[in-house]
Every structure is written in C-alpha cells, then in structure tokens.
Amino acid sequence: MTNDQIEQHHAKTEEAFKKYGYYSTFIFANNKPSFCYSTGIYKNFGIPELFISALPQNLSHELIENYVDQFKNVDSLPLNKRIEDLTGRFPVYLIEVPNNMLLDYTLATIKFYKGQEYKFLQLVYPDTKGLFPNDNGYDYDQIIVGEFKS
C-alpha cells in the first residue's frame, strides 16, 4: 500500500467509527476463503465482535450491521441457536470463538484493543441447499473457527 492509500484507509475507518461506532474489514484471500470482521462493537455496544467467513463483502457488512442493530440492547445473545431474522436471505447461528483462534485473521481488532479485553463470535450460515456444517451433504468453503453445534 502507498502512503496515500494508507491515509485513505485510516480516514475511511475514522468516518465509519464516527457514523456507526464500529468498522468492518473485508479481506479477499487468494488461496483460502475471504472473510470479514468487525472492530469496535465490543467497546461501543458491549456485544462481541463478529467474524464471517466466505460471504461477499456487501452481504458481510450487511450482516454485521444487522447484528449490531438487533443485539446491541439485549441482555443475552442467542448463542448456538438458529436465528431466522438477522437477514431475509437465510437463517444463521452465532457461535463463540476464542480470540486466540482468530489471531491470523483479525489484525485490525487486535491493534484497536491493544491488550484490552474483547470477545468474538462467528456467524455461521447454510450452504446453497440450506444445510449447515453439521448436516449430511453440507457443501461450502466457509471456515469454521469456533465449535459449531446445531
């Protein structure tokens, strides 16, 4: 990245923090599935950051936005439970992920918290046939970092 690109990225990040209270980073990966993750949700809304693997950029950002809107004012999250209304496209699950399992993925979040406490969840979604990772016949390249129980 050039210095100009880095400055543009930082300006975009600061603008997102001011407007939304968090920033989402999308990483296009060549040899493994792309992924997206949030930074700032835990600090500003008291709910875990979110990690999503192998979905398109706009859909990943939409899911993070919906997650914050739906759960920022609740006392407990529906972990390991089927969630039908996070998007109108398909059901999802939220699973816990130890931070150390995401060290190779969430560099912006690690840098943001600088050793402070934060938590992550992973959003798990079905394949194009509606099957989840524990279902027979599941066929999708999503990386499951936490322990998925359906």
Rank of each mutant, 00 (worst) to 15 (best):
T2W: 11
N73L: 11
E84A: 13
Y37T: 00
K149W: 00
S60L: 02
F45K: 04
E96F: 00
S150G: 13
M1G: 13
I144A: 00
F90N: 12
E15L: 09
F120T: 00
E117T: 06
V92P: 03
N134E: 15
T39H: 03
K149V: 08
L55D: 03
D4L: 15
D139N: 15
I6L: 13
L86W: 02
N30D: 12
F28W: 13
P33T: 10
R82W: 02
S53M: 00
K111I: 11
Y20C: 08
L55P: 03
D141W: 11
Q8A: 12
E117N: 12
P98W: 02
S53V: 03
C36F: 01
Y125A: 10
L77Q: 10
N99F: 00
M1R: 09
L59C: 09
V124K: 06
I41Q: 07
K149E: 14
F17A: 00
L123F: 11
I41S: 02
G88H: 14
Y22F: 12
I64P: 02
E117R: 12
S34N: 14
Y42I: 05
V92H: 01
E62P: 04
G130H: 04
H61L: 08
T13Q: 09
I6H: 12
Y118D: 05
G88R: 10
Q142V: 10
P98H: 07
F90T: 11
Y93A: 07
